[in-house]
């Protein structure tokens, strides 16, 4: 598949600091791509440069093969779903959806296009509501409809789920993914929520201090993180002498350990029941504290228990 969006050497300087530092990114058509990182890592600035709200200091942004870096937002075939949705408060749902469409089409297909896109996000029947009369989830879907109606080459989503309450978030997450599959539009989403990125995205780009740390599928990023930062940012990590180990790859045994596994003695400090699993905190002879994720079927460990921790060599994560 051809890349619909390519960022090459894109940097953005603000008066006080460099927000984005020489970012390269290629996104094939139809991909759901997530930009993740801690706050201030430059992910939002990167998104805003693709949208046209910020002009890069250097670098090119190729959208469908054309450099759009210097173009204003209204001359780019991308559309943004804002964190607070930014629905026009003086317009109905229909008015909001028609806002961008109106410039493109005539009256009859316009009404049909509005109907179709509202069908897509399950907002039929709410056409004449004002934004303040919608629930949080409905507002989010209205914002999606407004952007999708334009059939953009890339749909940009800025923390699209962060304004929803946590119970709703998981459900909307599934809907968002299904929607993306159905419309086939390329999604570029910014999020600070690692779980959101892992579950939604086809590929993830992890950013830190304005730079790209790693780009890859959720599996690659989680199982083969390129840097210690990526390992720490996506998922928990135990640090042993010279390498890292995921808590679920760290195993515990009261007596003998399996043949061929690497192991060390440890002292149980604490055990926390989390419902679906148990986190056992143990101390190694060198003083490193390690969290072990244990299934509740694997038995109980109490503070003061002397145990052996073991793992498979291929689960060791080593970084420069």
């Amino acid at each position: 598949m051809a890349d619909v969006l390519t960022l090459a050497g894109v940097s953005k300087d603000f008066p006080t600091h460099r927000a984005v530092d020489c970012v390269d990114l290629s996104i094939p058509a139809g991909e759901f791509h997530a930009l993740v990182g801690p706050s201030g890592c430059g992910k939002t600035t990167t998104l805003r440069m693709v949208a046209g709200f910020e002009i890069p200091t250097t670098g090119t942004i190729l959208l469908e093969g054309k450099n759009v870096a210097p173009l204003p937002p209204h001359q780019r075939n991308v559309s943004t779903v804002f964190q607070n949705y930014a629905l026009f408060p003086h317009l109905t749902v229909r008015g909001n959806v028609e806002f961008g469409l109106r410039r493109k089409r005539e009256a009859a297909p316009l009404a049909q296009a509005v109907r179709e896109v509202l069908e897509l996000v399950r907002l039929r029947g709410k056409e004449d509501r004002m934004p303040h009369q919608l629930s949080g989830g409905e507002r989010q879907r209205a914002a999606l409809a407004r952007s999708l109606a334009l059939a953009p080459a890339v749909l940009l989503l800025d923390e699209p789920l962060s304004a929803l309450d946590p119970n709703l978030r998981k459900q909307v997450r599934l809907e968002l993914k299904a929607l993306q599959r159905r419309v086939g539009i390329t999604f570029l989403m910014v999020t600070h929520d690692q779980e959101e990125a892992l579950t939604l995205a086809d590929r993830i780009t992890v950013m830190n201090q304005g730079q790209v740390e790693q780009t890859g599928t959720p599996r690659e990023i989680y199982l083969r993180p390129a840097t210690a930062f990526v390992a720490r940012f996506l998922g928990a990590m135990n640090w042993l002498e010279g390498f890292g180990l995921r808590p679920e790859a760290t195993r515990i045994a009261a007596g003998r350990v399996p043949e061929g596994a690497r192991s060390m003695p440890a002292l149980v400090l604490d055990s926390t029941f989390l419902g679906n699993c148990i986190h056992v905190l143990a101390e190694m002879p060198g003083g490193e504290k390690v969290t072990v994720e244990v299934s509740r079927f694997e038995g109980m460990y109490k503070p003061g228990d002397r145990v052996r921790l073991w793992w498979n060599e291929e689960d060791e994560l080593r970084f420069k």
Partner: peptide
């Protein structure tokens, strides 16, 4: 005024 409304309008193709 929420400035993202201005950005949203530009984003939706408004001059």
């Amino acid at each position: 005024l929420d400035y993202s409304l201005v950005e949203a309008a530009a984003d939706l193709g408004a001059t």
